[in-house]
Design a protein around this nucleic acid. Structure first.
Length: 931
RNA sequence: GCGGGUGUGGUGGAAUUGGUAGACACGCUAGAUUUAGGAUCUAGUGCCGCGAGGCGUGGGAGUUCGAGUCUCCCCACCCGCACCA
């Protein structure tokens, strides 16, 4: 029999499906292992060879753990709300649910033929009402919660109401933007609208007037992580700042826990760093500066309270609320001009003009807390309203931005930390001792900081504070294809939709565009009003419902939990399922979600834990970012302005040419283009003149780029599978290089892996002869096998799949050379191989006479005793490590012996008094020392 | 500017974590075989040199009997954040 992947792969895929081989069950006495892939957005283009990379790796891990006896949860689903389906709907009028459905069917078919061991009975789709009812439910829990800083956790809003009734705002330690005070009596007397107004400052899901990233082209707001350098991440449209009433989530309440949790998880350093950066914790102090003749104070945040005596002026953000009150009549006009200029400048312009120093004097002064000195107050847009207090104490001698500002506007400098030349540049290093600083004089910076905070606190002029860069997450989107936010409005006051009315299903609309008046698409729905008893009703019978929908990351912030209990009708995840599966042990996906999905998910899990719905504080114990598989584009040179195509080897000055992407399927592995096919493919080039190489071939230029339809460099896994089979594709993708690394797809090497599988097959079959014997294996054969098992076991533990594939190749080659067809060797070999090449392993396992699946056969253990060299080598110990090496005859080379002895004398020192029995050398070098 | 990462043959990449650098695979060269098929098998393949030999892990120093691996200083590229006080 020949190796025919085209026959055996569909056979086993059907078998697995029928027998539900990969169904995960909760067995309390069996250990669990939860391995999860980031679920895909089902795009219209289908999968390319880059998508399965992570799925293959996770599948290997899943199958390996089944061999180890774990209950493995390895699910898959779809992140099926999103912009592309909506934009397609806008263009064609096709309901996004329909396109999504079709795309999912295609994805499923592609995934199935890869032989993944997903438990499809647990599939989830974020756009499925049975799923998003719980996304809406979690939103309602956020709406009904506040953050109690005294208990370091979120609590039901009812505990807050109890506090208000009993104590008013007195003694409350809440994470809030509310700044007023009230008594229990005042609370009792307040109207529902007034009460809600206050509660909005406490709720973890709240509405506020805030500056948002508005993308006019997409007609929606975007979260900070969806904006890259002033352009939308999706589509690359310009983004401007706009004030709007918006739903937000109070993720900032969790800033400290999100930061602290990073130390408890096994994630790549780069992601941990990116999140640290994004959270942006900085320790420092809040300092109050009195304003002569006024009640208000200017509050600033600084990380360098030690430089307090170096302050020579104050700077407020142009939007700072105190600016208008402070500005004197004399400067009112210039300040107003400056404010208007600053407001006009978009985020992007500001970023482009970072070096440009602008500002305006307000005419007002603030008082230094420790000196009888008045500090001029300026406004400037280098101070951001959104960070800290929107105001800074300027220390031009020790902060480069303040320094530039002082130099531009001719403000004084005062050095208070020794070192540097402050006339040339700010001395911002945290080194040196304090001077001209009263009670701080002579202290090094590290000691001056706590001392300054102490003094500020004693005087009531400030306090130590930790500040975060993290902003609350804007949660509303002016789009159709997302989860409706389950809120209705009674006279402008938001109320939650009743839980029993969930899911609040997306209504049908005639078009998927915003309305002429700029309202979100949901405003087009005929029935989109709500009655607390009846649910969704026509207009006139209830209250208006919220028109915005949730952002793309809502469903993905908790989907890992739903897999644990996907069919639960009464809870997002049942207690038993949650307690058994706990958290994801291994999570695989791209690094592009570092500051989006991966932060929001951590936030939601912490919240759900606080409210007692789940047990794990962190969703993902270990995270691996698989690299991207890049396309290997083929470019054809065409002379500028002429219809002449020139082979790459004949091009002298590339400047004179345009480059046209050719479909990579028209190019062979030697970079030769099938010119005739290319002309048929691009009929505008049918009549082009061709200048070929001397040998008549036509060569293209290769370039590594992201895979994309428009670059014609997409390689479809279906084609690879049709030619070589899924097992070859799986092993080849693993063989390409380390999982985490990005690498270009190159089909050239695939024959090596395919040959390996055929060679494996030939250990069992020679044409139609079954070769397997019951003979006793030889030492050599056992050594090959156990070396393999050891290497693969180690590699699996380290997720080093490329080296594991190499180990298989070596072992199979050795066994072929030994003509080893012995059952005692081949059986464990197959089990070891089965996570990597499951179809082939299953098929041969069956032919070995087993009726059950190979899936649960225990993974073989290796034995060191088989691994020892039988000739010319023996174990030695050196520096406490055991190793095996060859013995060499010292008499071979006189020089080597001399050097060996020389080395021996030096080595003897740190070997102590243990006698050295033998020195092992190769000519000129000592290799090892035997004690 | 700050932070993270990477640098090894013609190519993808190994190196038991300080012990003969280049495993494995692709590619290439030569040969064998076959009713040219993108098949199979054998040998060779880091660079320079006819050779003995020399040189080699981005560059330079250092520690060590011994460095791709550890330390310091540079260089290049990739990624993230960025007037964050």
């Amino acid at each position: 029999m020949e190796y025919r992947p085209g026959d055996i792969e569909p056979k086993w895929q059907a078998h697995w499906r029928k027998k539900e081989t990969f169904r995960a069950e909760e067995k309390p006495d069996v250990d669990k292992y939860y391995v999860l892939d980031m679920f895909p957005y089902p795009s219209g283009a289908g999968l390319h060879v880059g998508h399965p990379l992570g799925y293959i790796a996770s599948d290997i891990v899943a199958r390996y753990h089944r061999h180890l006896g774990y209950q493995v949860l390895h699910p898959m689903g779809y992140d099926s709300f999103g912009l592309p389906a909506e934009q397609y709907a806008i263009q064609t009028g096709q309901h996004p649910a329909k396109t999504t459905e079709a795309n999912i069917a295609r994805y499923r078919q592609q995934l199935d033929q890869m032989g993944f061991s997903f438990d499809w009975s647990r599939e989830v789709r974020t756009s499925d009402p049975n799923f998003y009812r719980w996304t809406q439910w979690i939103f309602l829990q956020l709406f009904e919660s506040w953050y109690n800083c005294a208990h370091h956790r979120a609590e039901s809003i009812s505990t807050l109401l109890t506090h208000f009734r009993r104590h008013g705002s007195e003694g409350l330690q809440a994470f809030t933007t509310f700044e007023g005070q009230f008594t229990p009596q005042e609370w009792a007397a307040a109207s529902p609208a007034e009460k809600e107004e206050i509660l909005q400052h406490f709720r973890l899901a709240y509405r506020s007037e805030s500056t948002v990233n508005w993308c006019p082209a997409l007609g929606t707001v975007l979260a900070n992580d969806e904006v890259k350098e002033g352009y939308s991440e999706r589509g690359g449209h310009p983004v401007i700042q706009k004030k709007m009433m918006q739903w937000s989530l109070r993720v900032t309440a969790y800033a400290d826990r999100l930061e602290a949790g990073l130390n408890t998880i096994d994630w790549p350093a780069s992601i941990v760093e990116a999140q640290r950066n994004w959270i942006g914790r900085s320790e420092g102090a809040r300092v109050y500066f009195d304003l002569p003749g006024r009640e208000e104070k200017i509050e600033v945040f600084t990380t360098r309270p030690d430089t307090l005596f170096g302050v020579t002026f104050m700077v407020l953000a142009p939007e700072h609320p105190l600016v208008d009150q402070l500005t004197t009549a004399e400067y009112a006009a210039t300040v107003k001009d400056y404010q208007e200029m600053a407001a006009r400048r978009s985020e992007r312009e500001r970023m482009a003009e970072v070096k440009k120093v602008t500002g305006a004097f307000t005419g007002a002064y603030a008082r230094h807390p420790f000196k009888d000195e008045l500090l001029p107050i300026w406004i400037a847009d280098y101070v951001l309203a959104s960070y800290g207090t929107g105001a800074v104490m300027a220390v031009p001698a020790h902060d480069s931005r303040d320094w530039t500002f002082a130099k531009t506007f001719d403000l004084p400098l005062r050095q208070v930390v020794a070192g540097g030349d402050i006339e040339k540049a700010a001395h911002d290093a945290q080194e040196g001792k304090l001077e001209q600083s009263d009670f701080l004089n002579g202290l090094p910076v590290s000691q001056a900081i706590p001392k300054a905070i102490e003094a500020l606190e004693a005087k009531g002029a400030g306090r130590g504070e930790v500040n975060y860069r993290l902003r609350d997450a804007i949660f509303g989107r002016q789009r159709y294809w997302g989860e409706p936010i389950p809120i209705y409005y009674d006279d402008g006051v938001p109320h939650p939709v009743r839980e029993t009315h969930l899911p609040l299903e997306l209504p049908d609309v005639d078009q998927y565009l915003p309305t002429e008046t700029g309202e979100p698409p949901l405003a087009r729905a005929e029935r989109w009003h709500y009655h607390p008893d009846k649910g969704v009703v026509p207009p006139g019978e209830g209250y208006p419902l919220e028109l915005t929908t949730m952002p793309g990351w809502a469903g993905s912030s908790w989907y890992d939990l739903r897999y644990m209990d996907p069919h639960n009708r009464t809870e997002p995840v049942g207690r038993g399922a949650q307690q058994y599966w706990q958290q994801v042990d291994l999570y695989l996906g791209g690094s592009e979600h570092a500051t989006g999905h991966l932060i929001y998910t951590r936030f939601w899990h912490k919240f759900l834990k606080d409210r007692g719905y789940i047990e794990a504080e962190e969703p993902f114990k270990k995270l691996i970012n698989q690299g991207m598989i890049l396309g290997n584009s083929a470019l054809v040179y065409r002379r500028k302005g002429e219809n002449v195509l020139v082979s790459a080897g004949q091009v002298e000055d590339p400047q004179q040419y345009d480059r046209i992407h050719a479909d990579v399927s028209l190019v062979n592995t030697s970079d030769e283009l099938d010119v005739a096919a290319f002309r048929r493919w691009r009929d505008d080039l049918a009549g082009a003149e061709i200048i070929a190489e001397k040998d008549g071939s036509f060569k293209v230029l290769r370039e590594v780029e992201k895979m994309s339809k428009s670059k014609y460099n997409v390689v479809n896994p279906d084609d690879i599978i049709a030619q070589y089979g899924a097992d070859t594709l799986r092993m080849y993708e693993m063989f390409l290089g380390p999982l985490e690394q990005s690498k270009p797809w190159n089909t050239a090497g695939i024959s090596g892996v395919h040959n390996f599988l055929r060679k494996t097959w030939r250990l069992f079959w020679q044409e139609d002869t079954w070769l397997v014997t019951e003979e006793k294996p030889s030492e050599k054969e056992l050594k090959s096998l156990h070396q393999l098992i050891k290497k693969v076991t180690q590699d699996l533990k380290q997720y080093s799949f490329n080296t594991a594939v190499s180990a298989f190749m070596i072992a199979v080659k050795e066994l072929s050379d030994l003509k080893c067809h012995k059952r005692a060797i081949l059986e464990p070999l197959l089990v070891t191989l089965s996570p990597f090449a499951p179809h082939l392993s299953e098929e041969l396992w069956e032919q070995l006479g087993y009726s059950g699946s190979i899936e649960r056969v225990p993974f073989p253990a290796y034995e060191e005793s088989y691994l020892q060299e039988s000739t010319h080598a023996y174990p030695i110990s050196f520096n406490g490590k055991v190793r095996f090496t060859h013995e060499l005859d010292l008499s071979l080379d006189k020089k080597a012996v001399e050097e060996a002895v020389l080395g021996l004398e030096k080595t003897q020192k740190y070997l102590g008094d243990k006698p050295v029995r033998k020195v092992i050398v190769v000519p000129g070098k000592i290799v090892n020392i035997v004690q």
